[in-house]
Design a protein around this nucleic acid. Structure first.
Lengths: 199, 199
DNA sequence: CGAGGCATACCGACTGGTTAGTCTGCGCCC
DNA sequence: GGGCGCAGACTAACCAGTCGGTATGCCTCG
């Protein structure tokens, strides 16, 4: 009894519902403050379902990280490989990560706030992927510096951390109801980066 | 029995020992992962002592926040009021907050990672003080923009968030064992800010 | 074509362990 | 002798993960 009525309208698959519920709750309350019970209730299932699809609560968090990392890396790669001058490639990449981050503010909040809740191995894995991302971005900055279109006054590593600091920070202050659209914020932040890099 | 031996060498007062232990442990493991039991053991006392001086675990966290906020606000005020051109005042303030943050990386880590663990009222209070700090800093940027020594291309608010993003981010990547001294990092980051603001 | 078996998907009570905060009491100092 | 500073056992609540059980569809073989 009490099974889902068999209309032909497809229901969202349970694993996705669980991930969506977990993402929202982790962002709102933090990982440790969110009980597995809350997640399954929000997703309309029970613990049995969650542990059928995921090995642990920690696993759920890891899935959220993997999704974000994959998305951002793909987008960065696309911009970095474009057939454009390096200034434009960097600007586009810098602006895009801002837009994408704002579009997934919950993910971003979790990302930067809950890394230390991952198990050591999963944490290491995430760090490694994160480093790849960082290095790809840094390569863009270095390319411009070598070509002389960017100032070399600041080490490329620091430039990258400077920019990602601001991205990281977005989930702290950006509110959709605010005066600026995501694209406007992205343009401004990319502009600040490029202005700082003027020779 | 087992009282501290009564040599005349003054022992650090218990409340300070508790705060120091809590700061270290919160930074290492996160607020929720640190039990009150761990804190009192690290401080060499028992729960009775902790709850004698602090109303709750949450209170302990709030004290840490208050300490950081007071320190940073004092230093910003000093720089902002100095008798110097606005470029120098902003640069000094921007560099100083970096140095101070690196000198108290544990505090910084807790600050940005654990705000949501504070009770709603305490959270509101901290946000209010934080806003005062932000506005003081913004006033410096605006002063320079009005005077024409800084570009007005970017709203001052965004400029401030851009810089504090990088400060916020420090606890993620800065390691004392790294190649750069705190002062060098501070100079670079302040430089990036000022370069971005060149008209 | 239909019966029987099997895997997948999920349920929900239960367990063992942990935790913040309380409370009674004790010793030392003024 | 009274109160401050603290000790440490205790409680009530909670929580991640387990496990035996059930329903449902598919596949196979007679």
């Amino acid at each position: 009894m009490a099974t889902v009525p068999k209309t032909e309208q497809t229901t969202t698959p349970v694993p996705q519902r669980l991930l969506a519920a977990a993402t929202r709750l982790f962002a709102e309350q933090g990982y440790d403050r969110t009980s597995v019970q809350e997640i399954v209730e929000a997703a309309g299932v029970t613990k049995g379902a969650l542990y059928h699809y995921f090995g642990s609560k920690d696993d759920l968090l890891h899935e959220i990280y993997a999704r974000v990392l994959r998305l951002q890396q793909e987008r960065l790669d696309a911009h970095a490989e474009a057939d454009e001058p390096v200034e434009k490639r960097l600007r586009d990449a810098a602006a895009d990560v801002v837009v994408t981050t704002i579009a997934n503010l919950d993910d971003a909040q979790i990302f930067f706030r809950s890394m230390h809740h991952l198990s050591p191995e999963k944490n290491k894995q995430v760090r490694a992927e994160r480093r790849r991302y960082h290095e790809r971005f840094r390569a863009l900055v270095e390319e411009g510096q070598t070509a002389g279109v960017f100032s070399s006054a600041t080490p490329a590593d620091l430039v990258v951390d400077y920019h990602f600091g601001s991205v990281h920070h977005l989930s702290t202050w950006y509110r959709p109801a605010g005066p600026l659209t995501p694209q406007q914020v992205a343009d401004h932040l990319a502009d600040l980066l490029l202005r700082a890099l003027r020779p």
